[in-house]
Design a protein around this nucleic acid. Structure first.
Lengths: 186, 186
DNA sequence: TCCACTATTAAGACTAGGTCCTAATAGTAA
DNA sequence: TTACTATTAGGACCTAGTCTTAATAGTGGA
């Protein structure tokens, strides 16, 4: 038996979410209904047309661009980014980040958040960490939210110096100074 | 005076690279030529139409988004361990460790290998990284095998100092000095 | 069984942002 | 002037839609 309208619309929503590059025609075939039905469904569900969906996916990243690092490769969620100036990301500490023994976040996760933010803030095709001085000023526990703030503090020909400070509730938990290689001269 | 064809085409290429979401019509206005001229230019330069360009950007993002990269619990494979003395682990650099753009291993993976080795070598219930000075001496590429060697170089009441050196084919790629907190006094 | 109602399908006009093709015109160098 | 490149114009066609109107199918209730 054919799906009821409601079920079809639920599956449709999910399918488009999973594979947004699907046309109405393909959807119509999958569900064994006409294109018009699919269009009515999209209308009711406020799902934009294919070309708009593609644009949204494209825009998501292009939106004032992370050049050295695609934004989804940053550890943590970037909430603010001004290239060559500053960047902020948040990372919620979950089970997979902590030592099972004591529920304390493993250092490399904090480092990864800070380091990838340092890479992201650099407005260049290539950015690699050369050196870093870091300190973990207090342990971070399961469930805490770490806010990392990266700011560019210096530039010479081939290097950029970035300071990252990470906080939990305004309390500093990590501090790092990253000396980064860039691809191009300033 | 109007731009020569060659100059226009150069600028066109650059402009589309910078802002790929631009239509032929907008380009035609910017250069003060007809739409047809822009289309001939794109044809000669093998630049795809707007909708294709958007698709490319979207696709790229989609591919990179889908491939989430959480850091594995296992950071390298420990091949030798003498508590309170030295430890060795190996880490093979795969797709998930590198920047998609240039196939160079992301710093935090090398850090994670070294840091987790530093934690492992300490013969104590609790070991946390307090500070670290690290340097990445040469980029590590996809497919390379990183061998990290950690050795305890000092102890005071509450701290242990550990040096980690990571190699690819006997060539040093990473160096770090980790100042670790222990739970118990020595 | 008929009525009301929802769900579905169909058809037509129009859109953006193109492709592909042919043809006319402008500008320039030999 | 001739030959050539560069530019512009126009039309047919394309995809993946939009928006509108209208017809039909299917189902539940009195």
């Amino acid at each position: 038996m054919k799906l009821k309208k409601k079920d079809r619309q639920e599956q449709l929503t999910q399918m488009i979410e999973e594979t947004p590059f699907i046309t109405d025609e393909e959807l119509a075939n999958k569900f064994g209904v006409s294109i018009q039905t699919i269009r009515l469904d999209r209308l009711e569900l406020s799902i934009p047309e294919l070309r708009e969906r593609i644009k949204n996916v494209a825009n998501k990243n292009w939106n004032e661009t992370v050049r050295a690092l695609p934004i989804d490769e940053v550890i943590g969620e970037v909430v603010n980014l001004e290239l060559d100036n500053l960047a902020i990301s948040i990372l919620d500490i979950h089970e997979e980040h902590v030592f099972s023994r004591n529920q304390i976040a493993r250092g490399h996760h904090l480092f990864a958040q800070a380091n990838s933010l340092a890479v992201a803030v650099i407005n260049d095709e290539l950015a690699l960490t050369a050196n870093a001085e870091i300190s973990f000023t207090r342990p971070v526990k399961l469930g805490e939210r770490v806010v990392a703030k990266a700011s560019v503090v210096g530039n010479d020909q081939k290097r950029t110096i970035i300071e990252v400070k990470s906080f939990v509730n305004n309390e500093i938990v990590f501090e790092g100074k990253f000396y980064m290689y860039r691809n191009t001269d300033k």
